[in-house]
Design a protein around this nucleic acid. Structure first.
Lengths: 144, 144
DNA sequence: ACATTAATATCAGGGGACTGATATAATATA
DNA sequence: TATATTATATCAGTCCCCTGATATTAATGT
């Protein structure tokens, strides 16, 4: 006689982790569709926003701000530079740091992108509970 | 005199989208660290769970269940097959469908992985509000 | 019966996230 | 001063996610 099944078949479908993934995925796709007209992705848009708020930021600073590794940010910056949306120049008195600025084209593109993306955030907030943001950051903190 | 700033420098840092991204990223990394001992990633674990719940599922079925494209699921299945965690065999009377099953090794690995992952979900739920899951699925729906 | 449409699998390529490794510059310490 | 540590940038490789394209089989409609 075979032993009884004692492994509960855990169903990630009914887990918080899965709901989180689906919401994030939906939001990312929604943003991507709206940004496609400007040749931007959602993460690229976020980097440009960071540069608007903090012109001349370094790769390391941008990575910390976006909560990604410097390697990830590096590859994004290379692409944005190739697309001529940003300009990178070595720091004048710090031999290693590369300072990054929005280019003229980057500023123009970003300005248009802001409007395209507002709708996504508005829809998300309408469907979410009022304390959703605080709660999500609490979850992120608890798992970091 | 320079013109006044009329572009509000939108800060994604204070957006719901960003909080969502951070929470999802933290959860994914938390799971990945716990699963690393078994050579699994979080998405791979989820696929194995789907196969446990629905043995013999096709690529298309698994993709729909995981809310990813068939191409994405295809590449994951190829890797899982190479790792000998699953077995794929053509359907007997449907010429195109590839039926997927957990291998013996896949069942054993999954059984251990279940326990490793419980902690992540427990921590996340402890930090989240009671209606978080329902709310997140509502957000996903609103943006799809 | 034949033609169209839908479903399935799969190839190719790109973006963004990770880890691991390396080189170099700045800083701290012995 | 010389050494060690830290910070920065960057190369290489992998995984997961997407879009676009293609081939094949099944189902449908005329």
């Amino acid at each position: 006689m075979p032993p009884p099944e004692n492994d509960v078949p855990f169903t990630p479908h009914e887990s918080l982790g899965y709901a989180l993934k689906r919401a994030q995925q939906a939001l990312r796709l929604h943003m991507d569709r709206r940004l496609k007209a400007f040749g931007l992705t959602a993460p690229q848009y976020n980097v440009l926003c960071s540069l608007e708020a903090e012109p001349g930021a370094s790769n390391a600073q941008l990575a910390r701000r976006a909560f990604v590794t410097p390697q990830t940010m590096q590859s994004m910056l290379v692409k944005l530079e190739r697309a001529a949306l940003i300009e990178r120049t070595p720091d004048s008195d710090h031999g290693r740091i590369q300072r990054t600025q929005l280019s003229r084209s980057g500023r123009e593109t970003l300005s248009k992108a802001h409007q395209a993306v507002q709708e996504t955030e508005r829809l998300a907030q309408a469907a979410a509970s009022p304390d959703a943001m605080k709660m999500l950051l609490r979850v992120a903190e608890a798992l970091s």
